[in-house]
Design a binder for these strands. Structure first.
Length: 352
DNA sequence: AAGAATATCAACCGCGAAGCG
DNA sequence: TCGCTTCGCGGTTGATATTCT
């Protein structure tokens, strides 16, 4: 491809915004003859444009089936979930949103959704919570903001469940703050994150009671209960709290403290090695919460299916179940199995 | 009111894949 | 199999609009 000249260099072809007259000529021509060879089209249609420019104009703006206007809440959520599965595959994402173009979705992502995820404390590349050891309180605020998103997602649930989930997520956010702080205090190379929650474990000595009370609203007894409860009942759901081993060491020279360091392996899948799940990279923060906007196919698809009413939302909780803990409910929401057929279909579509 | 900063989005560029002789 | 052409995709740019100071 070296040395290939841009199409606009050929004979001073026009660049830049299209005039209404050019649009009319292009639409008229395609309606009469179809686009045929894009390269030949402008010559036949009498346009002083390159074929590429004509194709772009037609596919992004002039096609009759294009849907203009603001993205709906549903479209927005769909894009976020598809992005968690597909990454920056804008044309693939556009395939799931009739009437929307890849360019429009890409712009919308870059101008709105990326910021929105960042504000929620989620990494827009991995869709996992960001870690930012230098700004712990801000991190907590982001996590709490994320819990509000969760409560928005639950608007079809009964109010009790929504409130319980939000309360759990808030508690979880506090625990993450606690973990962060312990990590920064520098005495923690925990054998597991559960150890961090153990008030009688090796890490607890560095936490004054006053801090627990004033900042986290916890006392030693509450912390003990949390530890006991979580370790006894929910260990399987705590997998995402497990620190990758290299993250157990405090940041060294070439590790960024700003939380913005993304393993290049998760920026874009290698050609021929495209994955539908967002990779869990070595840079994934050790203090990750369970995903609120999931990076895993199962969870993303679950949300998608909820949106498509293929799963009853309140399957996620059973208020009558007294043995089900709040945290289990969260786990159910995040890890509930979905139809294999549906997921296989999605994979097939994207890989073929 | 005006200039600066920021947001938006249409359009362009370059690359890789597919098609074809 | 190879080389050329065409197409489509994703990243980026830059003009314009909007908001902020």
């Amino acid at each position: 491809m070296m040395g290939r000249t841009p199409c606009s260099d050929e004979n001073g072809l026009k660049k830049g915004p299209w005039t209404p007259e050019e649009d009319r000529i292009l639409v008229d021509y395609i309606q009469k003859h179809g686009h045929g060879s894009w390269r030949a089209l402008p010559k036949h249609a009498g346009l002083n444009r390159c074929g590429k420019s004509c194709r772009l104009r037609w596919t992004n703006y002039l096609r009759p089936d294009i849907k203009r206007g603001k993205f709906s809440e549903e479209e927005e959520q769909l894009i976020i979930n598809l992005h968690a599965v597909l990454g920056n595959k804008w044309s693939a994402i556009a395939g799931h949103l009739p009437g929307r173009t890849d360019n429009e979705i890409k712009n919308f992502w870059n101008t709105h959704l990326k910021k929105k995820l960042l504000q929620m404390g989620l990494d827009p590349v991995t869709h996992r919570p960001r870690s930012d050891h230098l700004n712990l309180l801000s991190n907590l605020q982001q996590l709490l903001a994320a819990t509000n998103i969760v409560s928005n997602l639950t608007n079809t649930w009964d109010t009790n469940n929504a409130l319980r989930l939000q309360s759990d997520a808030t508690q979880l956010a506090k625990l993450q703050l606690l973990q962060n702080i312990l990590h920064v205090l520098g005495d923690t190379t925990p054998t597991s994150n559960l150890d961090l929650l153990n008030p009688f474990g090796p890490s607890s000595s560095s936490l004054p009671d006053g801090f627990l009370n004033e900042v986290l609203g916890l006392n030693q007894s509450k912390l003990q209960n949390l530890y006991n409860g979580y370790s006894a009942q929910n260990q399987p759901n705590l997998q995402s709290f497990e620190p990758p081993h290299q993250q157990q060491v405090l940041p060294t020279g070439n590790q960024h403290m700003d939380g913005g360091s993304i393993d290049s392996s998760c920026m874009k899948p290698e050609k021929g090695d495209e994955q539908l799940d967002v990779p869990y990279s070595s840079s994934t923060p050790f203090n990750s919460l369970p995903n609120l906007v999931s990076a895993s196919p199962e969870c993303s698809t679950h949300v998608l299916m909820q949106m498509e009413n293929k799963v009853m939302p309140n399957e996620c909780s059973d208020p009558s179940s007294s043995t089900s803990t709040n945290f289990e409910m969260w786990g159910d929401f995040m890890y509930e199995e979905v139809s294999d057929a549906y997921w296989k279909d999605l994979i097939d579509k994207e890989t073929n």
